[in-house]
């Protein structure tokens, strides 16, 4: 692109502006109060405004900076698989129980690295499931069903 600006700075600025405006707009719904007795909305509106301003400033400073190349490639496979398994873990830990969830999480996470073959991932997953079972369930007495209610027939 012929944009004479640091894309990193623009992106970072945009994230800050997005967060700042979210917090400030959402806080409009709460009581603002007075400086003497600040309401729940006072600080978030103030800080949200500051964050928007800082975000704009970050982006503005990015203009005129030479583009330093596009950086390393996005690790899409890692992002999707790692974050996906964390969401999967949260969604199913209660229903499926410890063993199936931990096993699946470990297997899929291991596969997010291109360097792991299926066999290696399976070995890693089995080993880690055992390890986590020993540490958290046996060692620390974590209360969690090994096989959850979704799996009882």
């Amino acid at each position: 692109m012929a944009l004479n600006a640091s894309r990193d700075d623009l992106a970072a600025g945009a994230i800050f502006v997005a967060f700042g405006s979210f917090f400030a707009l959402e806080a409009m719904k709460y009581e603002f109060g007075t400086p003497f007795r600040m309401g729940p909305g006072f600080m978030p509106i103030l800080l949200g405004g500051i964050l928007v301003a800082l975000g704009i400033a970050v982006a503005a400073k990015g203009f005129g900076k030479p583009e330093t190349g596009s950086g390393p490639a996005w690790p899409w496979r890692g992002i999707v698989l790692v974050l996906g398994t964390i969401l999967f873990f949260a969604a199913t830990i209660r229903g499926l129980g410890f063993v199936p969830v931990v096993l699946t999480t470990a297997l899929v996470t291991a596969l997010s690295s291109r360097r792991n073959s299926w066999l290696a991932a399976l070995v890693i997953a089995l080993g880690l499931t055992m390890l986590c079972y020993l540490i958290f369930v046996v060692g620390l007495g974590m209360i969690v069903p090994l096989f959850g209610p979704w799996l009882s027939f």
């Binding site: 790692v82 949260a90 931990v102 996470t109 291991a110 690295s113 890693i124 880690l128 986590c132």
Partner: peptide, 18 residues
């Protein structure tokens, strides 16, 4: 590292959940 990071992800999830 390819063995290490699945362990980190798992510990993070289980630890935080517990």
């Amino acid at each position: 590292y390819r063995v290490l990071f699945p362990a980190i992800v798992l510990f993070a999830c289980i630890g935080t959940y517990s």
